[in-house]
């Protein structure tokens, strides 16, 4: 099955400059943004699912990237959100460095294969140094979307 992550990220799920300075506050801010834009119905349940995972692992995959994620019925379908932190946030990354780019992925409980595939595709995309640089320097949500669309395979 071919899955394009760009199809699951909407401009209204992008925060160009997140205010939060620590990881749980960043997750709260991203989820609140998604609730305000009617992308998520049950923000509280969503945060609970994301926080559960954060307690059991580091979603900071290194190189300035964090991918908080969860399978939860608080969302109706596979969903992506993006946020950028100019100063970086401590996501307990495996390389000990702060995360500047945060991608959030969620799917309903019963969409495990799409969810795993989306995580794998996104992780692979973000291993590419030029992509990370472009995302850090992009000016608006449309540019973020364009970078992902043009660089995913």
């Amino acid at each position: 099955m071919q899955l394009k992550i760009s199809e699951y990220l909407k401009p209204e799920a992008i925060i160009m400059e997140i205010k939060a300075k620590e990881k749980l506050a960043a997750i709260d801010e991203l989820v609140a943004h998604m609730v305000n834009n009617k992308l998520v119905s049950n923000g509280e349940e969503f945060i609970k699912a994301l926080a559960k995972r954060e307690n059991l692992e580091s979603t900071g995959i290194g190189d300035g990237i964090a991918i908080p994620h969860a399978r939860t019925n608080a969302v109706k379908g596979l969903l992506l959100a993006f946020a950028r932190s100019p100063k970086g946030i401590d996501f307990s990354s495996i390389d000990g460095k702060p995360s500047y780019i945060i991608f959030l992925i969620a799917s309903p409980e019963n969409q495990k294969s799409e969810y795993i595939m989306a995580l794998a595709k996104l992780s692979r995309l973000l291993r590419k140094h030029p992509v990370r640089e472009m995302l850090r320097n992009a000016n608006d949500p449309e540019e973020i979307m364009k970078i992902i669309k043009e660089n995913e395979e």
Binding site: K52, R53, L56, E57, S58, R71, I94, K112, Y115, I116, M117, L119, A120, K121, S123, R124, R127
Partner: peptide
């Protein structure tokens, strides 16, 4: 590489369901 990431996230998903810490 893609298969690798999928395996990693499959382990992680199962680990979270079982309350096991992963990296």
């Amino acid at each position: 590489e893609e298969n690798g990431w999928q395996l990693l996230y499959l382990v992680e998903d199962e680990a979270v369901e079982n309350g096991v810490w992963t990296s």
